[in-house]
Computed example of a mutant assay.
Amino acid sequence: MPDLLPILTSLAWPIALAVAWLAGEFGQRFTGLPRISFYGLVGFALGSAQIGVLPAPDAGPVALLADIAFGLILFELGYRINLRWLVNNPWLGVAGLAESVLTFVAVYLVALAFGTTHIIALMMAALSMGTSPATVVRVINEQRSSGQVTERVLHLTALNCVLAVFAFNAIIGFWIFRTFDAVGEALWQSSVMLAGSALVGAVFGVVVPALLRAIHNPRQDATVAFALAIVLLAAICDAGALSPYIAALAFGLTARHRRIAFSQAQRNFGALGELLTVLLFVYAASTLDWRQIAAGSALAVVVVLVRQVSKMLGVTAFARLSGVSWRKGALTGLGLAPLSVFVILLMEHARHAGVHVVEELRAMAAVTMLLEVFGPVIIQRVLVWAREAPENPHAA
C-alpha cells in the first residue's frame, strides 16, 4: 500500500485552490462581497500555522507562480496608467505624494509610540505607504467600474507601489549595513534596483509589441504574448535580484504607449488570470501566522485607522485643485485601503533574501489579515458610493 503522506502533500495546493474558488463563488453569490475576500480567508485557514493543509511558504514554484500572478495584475495596472493625464493634471501626482508621505510619518510615529524599534517602525511605515494593486484591479474588473474615482484610485495605486518598493528596499539597505552612516549607499542600491527593474520592464514593453506587429495579428495574440512575457520577466527578475513588481508595472506602462490593444475581454487574462488570482490570494494569506496576528493586533488596528485617515486627508486636500469634489477626493483616499497581497509578497521576498528582521513585523501580519478581508469590501463600497459600479454585485 503506497504511503499516503506524499500523495496528500502533492494534492494540498490543488485541493486548496478548488476549495477557495468554491468559497469565492458561493460567498459572492450569497453575501455580495468580493470573491477575493473569501480566497484570502480560505488561504489563511489552510495555512501551515493554522490547520496545516498547505506547506510552509518557501521560494519554490508556488512562490514564483504567485509572482507571475501579481505580475499579470501589475501589467494590467500599468497598461491603464495614462502618463499624459498626470502631466496635464500634476495635482493628482502631488496628492499621491502627499498622502504617501503623510502615511509614512503617521505610521512611523504610531509604531514608535507602541515601543517598536526605529528600524521596524521605518519598515512598517514604508509598507503602509503601499496599496495592493491585486485587490484594486481585481475588484474594479469584477465590478466593471469606470469613472473619475476608479481612474484616480488606479493611478495613485501605481504611484504608491513605486514609492513603497523604493522606501522598503532603502530601509532594508539600512538594516543590511547596520548603521545609518550608510544612508547614501542604501539609497543608491535601492535606486539602482528600481531603475534596473523599470528598464527591464520597459525593454519588454518595446520588444513584445514589436514582435506582435511582426506576426501581423496583434489583437488576437496579444493576451498570450503578454502572459508569456510576464512569466519570462518574473523569472529574469528572480534570477537578477530585481523587483518583478516594478518591472511588470513598467512593462504595462510602456506597452500602452506602444499602442497594442488590450481589450476589455482580455482583462484578468482570461481563465489563466482567474486561476492565478485564486492562487495568489490563497498563497499570500497562507503565509500568515495566527500567533503573529494575535501578538500585533492592538498596534495593527491603530495602524489601519491612522493609515486610512492619512490617505484620505492627503488626497482630499488636493481634490479641488486636481479637478474633483471634496467627496470624490475622500472616496478616492478611502479606495486606497487595500494593502494585503502587496505587503505580504514584499515581506516574503525580503525573508527569502535573508532579512530575518522581517519576522519582527508582527503588527504588519495583523494589518494585512485585517485588510485581506476588509480591503476588497471597502473598495467595492467606494465604487458603489461613487456611482461608478452597480449596487447589485451579482450583475458583475
Rank of each mutant, 00 (worst) to 15 (best):
V137M: 14
Q50T: 03
L127G: 12
W188Y: 10
A330V: 12
W175H: 08
L41W: 09
R138G: 15
M124E: 15
T223D: 09
A210I: 12
A225S: 12
L163Q: 07
G296A: 09
G333T: 02
A195E: 13
R307G: 02
R144P: 03
R327K: 06
A214S: 12
P57S: 07
L122A: 07
L199R: 01
T103D: 09
P209Y: 08
P61K: 01
A261G: 04
M364Y: 02
G270I: 11
P244Q: 00
F30W: 11
A56Y: 07
H349L: 15
R258D: 14
G93C: 03
T116R: 08
A20D: 10
S10V: 02
A298F: 15
L163W: 05
L272T: 09
V309L: 11
V367N: 13
G329T: 01
R387H: 14
V367P: 14
V153S: 10
L321Y: 00
F104G: 07
P390I: 14
G252D: 01
Y108M: 14
A56N: 10
I260Y: 14
P393E: 15
W85Q: 09
A106N: 13
D289H: 14
V303C: 12
N82H: 10
A366M: 06
G47I: 13
G196V: 05
L11R: 03
A248Q: 08
I15D: 07
V309P: 01
Y79Q: 06
A202G: 10
M193V: 11
A284N: 10
L17Y: 04
L72V: 01
Q148R: 13
V162F: 09
F204Y: 15
L92V: 01
D58F: 02
S325R: 00
L321R: 00
Q50C: 01
L313D: 02
P376H: 07
G205F: 07
V107W: 00
P393Y: 09
S286I: 04
F342N: 02
G60A: 11
E388M: 14
L211M: 09
E348T: 05
V206P: 08
L346G: 07
I260W: 08
L194P: 01
A164Y: 04
M364A: 03
V107E: 00
A182P: 01
E348I: 02
S190V: 08
L232K: 08
K311N: 05
E76C: 00
A167W: 15
F75P: 00
G47K: 10
V224C: 08
A125V: 05
I51P: 01
I171C: 00
I260T: 15
L346Q: 09
W290I: 15
D221Y: 08
F374E: 05
F38D: 06
V153A: 13
A126I: 13
P61A: 02
V377L: 06
H216L: 04
G354Y: 07
A18W: 06
G273H: 06
F281P: 15
I51Q: 02
V208E: 06
L86S: 04
A95N: 03
S190H: 11
D181W: 09
L127W: 13
G375L: 10
I36Y: 10
G147K: 01
L156I: 05
